[in-house]
């Protein structure tokens, strides 16, 4: 069994009072708790902190831990003969257990519960996973490979991230920010303990054309001045292939045209809508003839889109 220096982990001396230990734990917990900390290494760090505190806050466990003596972290050691932590329990094979297992059973043994080899049922851990999917996958549903790492102790007793791979079906109808729970797909339970659960946080990868508003989609639809003025029928891409969209005459920039049922699927089989947002685009490199026609239009048109400014426009050119 590898030694872990719980005092060192909490940054307190071996003679620290229980108040000092509690204070040190609180301070570190505020710093590394995965629900508060933005530190990506916080989860592993907090696991060690929690393990150290669980043992040192309990006077009996702490006395048993102290009786193990002081060893350099990671060094192989065996508890001394007649060590208080093993009394009344079955004999351990100290080679294949972790220091935390030794203390996890302490309370149960103290209350005279029956143990088999010192281990009761240990439920598997829950894991949370961020899953990014494309809009196409959200539209059709998809099987995704989830690659995630979980903190586990290696042979040296050090916390390491171990890679796990898992295939999951992401059903049609998920939305950006959707949370899913896969029961029993978390960490394996031990000694008859239940498996943990896997929580998935779904988010959508930004799409080059579509923006998402719940189950609706938006697409910018660039149109020419004459298409906007005269109306037109244009092809618009959707997640389910292109559709023809009729643009009525006299449409301004920013006008939203609804393409019904071409948004993202909802859970009840219905779909959101796709909205084409009109953007009038001027010709970037107009030919001489195009410029001439525009000038002609300018001459004959009396249209002033700025009358609401209430300004005298007689000197405008």
């Amino acid at each position: 069994m590898k030694f872990k220096d719980y005092y060192e982990i909490l940054g307190v001396s071996r003679t620290a009072t229980s108040d000092e230990i509690k204070k040190a734990y609180r301070k570190l917990a505020h710093q590394y708790h995965p629900d508060i900390s933005k530190d990506p290494a916080g989860e592993e760090k907090f696991k060690e902190i929690g393990e150290a505190y669980a043992t040192l806050k309990d006077s009996e466990k702490r006395a048993a831990y102290d009786a193990l003596g002081s060893h350099p972290s990671g060094q192989e050691f065996r508890p001394p003969p007649n060590w208080s932590g093993s009394q009344g329990g079955q004999s351990y094979s100290f080679d294949d257990i972790d220091l935390s297992d030794l203390f996890a059973n302490f309370a149960g043994r103290r209350h005279g519960e029956q143990h088999h080899g010192g281990h009761g049922p240990i439920p598997g851990q829950d894991y949370e996973l961020a899953v990014q999917i494309s809009l196409e996958d959200a539209y059709h549903g998809a099987m995704v490979d989830l690659n995630f790492t979980v903190p586990e102790y290696d042979n040296q007793g050090q916390l390491k991230r171990v890679a796990h791979t898992f295939k999951a079906r992401i059903p049609k109808g998920v939305s950006h920010g959707q949370k899913l729970l896969l029961r029993g797909k978390g960490g394996k339970g031990a000694n008859g303990g239940k498996n943990g659960n896997l929580y998935l946080n779904i988010s959508f990868i930004a799409h080059s054309l579509f923006r998402v508003a719940e189950h609706d989609l938006l697409i910018d639809l660039p149109v020419t001045v004459w298409e906007a003025t005269l109306g037109a029928t244009v092809k618009v891409p959707t997640l389910d292939g292109p559709v023809n969209l009729k643009i009525p005459a006299g449409m301004n920039s920013g006008k939203k045209l609804r393409i019904k049922g071409h948004g993202l699927p909802k859970q009840n089989q219905a779909h959101g809508d796709l909205f084409a947002v009109l953007q009038i685009v001027v010709t970037p490199n107009p030919s001489e003839q195009e410029v001439a026609l525009m000038k002609q239009l300018a001459d004959i048109s009396s249209f002033n889109p700025r009358t609401h400014f209430g300004l005298d426009t007689t000197n405008e050119k």
Binding site: M143, F166, K167, A168, R169, P171, S175, Q178, K179, L180, L181, L182, R183, G184, K185, Y199, Q267
Partner: peptide, 15 residues
């Protein structure tokens, strides 16, 4: 590994 939908729970306002 097969993914059994019976184990899937949607954590949203519709469920």
């Amino acid at each position: 590994m097969k993914n059994n939908d019976a184990e899937l729970l949607w954590l949203d306002e519709h469920h």
